[in-house]
Design a protein around this nucleic acid. Structure first.
Length: 152
DNA sequence: GCCAACGTTGGC
DNA sequence: GCCAACGTTGGC
């Protein structure tokens, strides 16, 4: 059982829209490092859902891996902004798991609060210049962040 | 295989 | 909207 964090712009897919939809293919990721992490996700792994780009930025809730990575259909769709002419059916470049909604935190955990927690300072998310949209998270850091979000 | 130019991400 | 920090591309 592994733990992850994915970033999403709420205007594209917020935790509320994931709740409404139940589950969604995590498509459109076009970064090799992020793709490699997406392919390592296993069914039932737990994922912190992070809102980026719009204030407030931070961890909004939890989802889980409901399907392991399949070829991202948008890479074959010439009408999609994620279309990749170099992808073929035989060797797709981009892969996406399916994520299923679990819950919205009682308390939104802002990035500023994560930065204040000394025990979290090793997280790749918090490292300077980090722009990756998918991160592996240690069980210790995961438990800490959940305790911040679920504390009453 | 280097690296300059360009594009993108994402916090602020 | 700015811009620092990255990632990718493509000429050589």
């Amino acid at each position: 059982m592994a733990f992850w964090l994915v970033k999403s712009e709420p205007s594209v897919c917020s935790i509320e829209s994931l709740k409404r939809d139940g589950a969604t293919l995590w498509d459109g990721v076009r970064n090799y490092q992020a793709r490699n992490l997406l392919r390592e996700m296993r069914k039932m792994d737990t994922v912190l859902f992070y809102h980026s780009s719009e204030e407030p930025v931070g961890v909004a809730g939890l989802c889980e891996v409901s399907k392991e990575a399949v070829p991202d259909p948008t890479q074959f769709d010439s009408g999609s902004k994620y279309f990749d002419p170099k992808s073929t059916d035989e060797s797709p470049r981009w892969w996406c798991p399916e994520l299923r909604f679990l819950r919205i935190f009682q308390r939104f955990v802002p990035l500023s609060e994560l930065r204040k927690e000394k025990s979290l300072s090793g997280m790749t998310l918090l490292q300077k210049g980090s722009r990756l949209s998918v991160h592996r998270v240690s069980e210790k850091d995961f438990t800490k962040i959940v305790s911040l979000g679920e504390r009453s």
